[in-house]
């Protein structure tokens, strides 16, 4: 079944008499066989989809970032062992991958990519956005990270170095953005609301304090 995966790209459009798309049929075929053989439980599949669609999102990561901004001990733990520090707040790595947190500073801005496929820190950021999975991002961010930042509307000072981190199946990166100015004394919850998904991938910055 190696070579028959690509041919359907051009003709799985809806024929007048067809009810389900080619991809839908293939998915149902696979799922019904796996369910019959007891490899997957349909209710567990639904629960997992619901979890990723509605409950995880990038909010888990935002809470980790806000905690790092307010608690120096937690920040130090994140630097030392991000996998443990992140799972301590309840966001374990589903794939057993190691997490590493890369912190932005005035001198260095970090961006995360997966050039091979689309490894992504699901437990903290939910599912990846479409552009993260697309070839243009994956290839351009390596050769022209500042150009990518400009595409996302981010302009950094000329002296800031941009570092690109290529995720693998073993290591997933989470960017720790810089805490926005004017947020002294804010609670973690209020700070977390400033942390956008893109700011934790590195293609964006946190919201500014006055905008919330």
């Amino acid at each position: 079944m190696s070579d028959d995966h690509h041919h359907d790209h051009d003709h799985d459009h809806d024929h007048p008499d067809s009810v389900l798309s080619e991809m839908d049929l293939r998915t149902r075929a696979l799922e019904s066989i796996l369910v019959e053989k007891g490899y997957v439980d349909p209710a567990a599949l639904d629960a997992l989809v619901d979890l990723y669609e509605t409950k995880i999102g990038p909010r888990n990561g935002a809470r980790v970032v806000a905690k790092a901004w307010t608690d120096p001990n937690y920040r130090e733990w994140l630097d030392r062992d991000a996998t443990e520090a992140i799972s301590s707040v309840g966001y374990g790595g589903r794939q057993g991958e190691h997490m590493r947190v890369v912190a932005n500073t005035p001198d260095t801005h970090n961006i995360v990519v997966c050039t091979l496929c689309s490894c992504y820190p699901w437990p903290v950021l939910g599912l990846p956005p479409v552009w993260y999975k697309a070839a243009p991002y994956r290839s351009k961010v390596v050769r022209d990270p500042r150009g990518v930042l400009a595409d996302f509307g981010v302009e950094l000072p000329a002296g800031t170095q941009v570092r690109v981190w290529d995720s693998t199946a073993e290591v997933r990166y989470l960017v720790l953005p810089m805490r926005p100015a004017g947020t002294e004394g804010w609670t973690e919850e209020r700070l977390a609301a400033l942390v956008t998904r893109d700011s934790m991938i590195g293609t964006g910055l946190p919201l500014e304090a006055r905008k919330t």
């Binding site: 798309s21 991809m23 839908d24 293939r26 998915t27 149902r28 696979l30 799922e31 796996l34 490899y39 997957v40 439980d41 567990a44 599949l45 639904d46 997992l48 989809v49 990723y52 669609e53 999102g57 990038p58 909010r59 589903r94 794939q95 950021l125 939910g126 599912l127 990846p128 956005p129 479409v130 956008t196 998904r197």
Partner: peptide, 22 residues
Amino acid sequence: DGPVFDEPWQAQAFAMAVKLHE
């Protein structure tokens, strides 16, 4: 703030891979 699946089959395929890995 985040992505969603385009079509239900994508969500099912995603979940099956995670469950088989588990």
